[in-house]
Simulated assay, not measured.
Amino acid sequence: MESCTINSPLGHTKIIGNDEGVSSISIVDSEDKISETIPEPLQKCAEQLMAYFENSLKVFDLKLNPKGTEFQKKVWKQLETIPYGKTMSYLELSKQLGDAKAIRAVASANGKNPLWIIVPCHRVIGRDGSLTGYAGGLHRKQWLLNHESQNKQQSLF
Rank of each mutant, 00 (worst) to 15 (best):
S3L: 12
S3E: 08
I6V: 07
I6D: 13
N7T: 13
H12I: 03
H12E: 06
H12C: 14
I16Q: 12
I16E: 09
E20F: 06
S24F: 06
I27L: 13
D29Q: 02
D29L: 15
S30D: 06
S30F: 12
K33A: 06
S35T: 13
E36D: 10
E36A: 15
L42T: 09
Q43M: 05
K44L: 15
C45H: 09
E47M: 15
E47N: 10
Q48Y: 06
M50V: 07
M50S: 11
A51Q: 11
A51N: 02
Y52N: 03
N55A: 07
S56N: 11
S56G: 05
L62Q: 12
L64H: 00
L64G: 12
P66M: 03
G68R: 05
G68T: 13
T69S: 02
F71I: 01
Q72N: 06
K74S: 15
W76E: 01
I82Q: 04
I82T: 00
Y84D: 07
M88H: 07
M88S: 14
E92P: 08
E92C: 14
L97S: 04
L97T: 01
G98T: 01
G98P: 01
A100H: 08
A100G: 10
K101T: 00
I103M: 13
A107M: 00
S108T: 08
N110A: 02
G111D: 05
K112D: 13
N113E: 00
W116Y: 08
I117W: 13
I118K: 01
V119Y: 04
C121G: 06
C121H: 15
R123Y: 05
R127C: 11
G129E: 15
S130I: 03
L131K: 02
T132E: 06
G133E: 07
Y134Q: 08
G136P: 12
L138A: 07
L138I: 12
H139M: 02
K141G: 08
Q142I: 11
Q142H: 03
N146W: 15
N146G: 09
H147E: 14
Q150M: 05
N151T: 09
K152F: 05
K152R: 07
S155T: 01
S155N: 06
L156F: 15
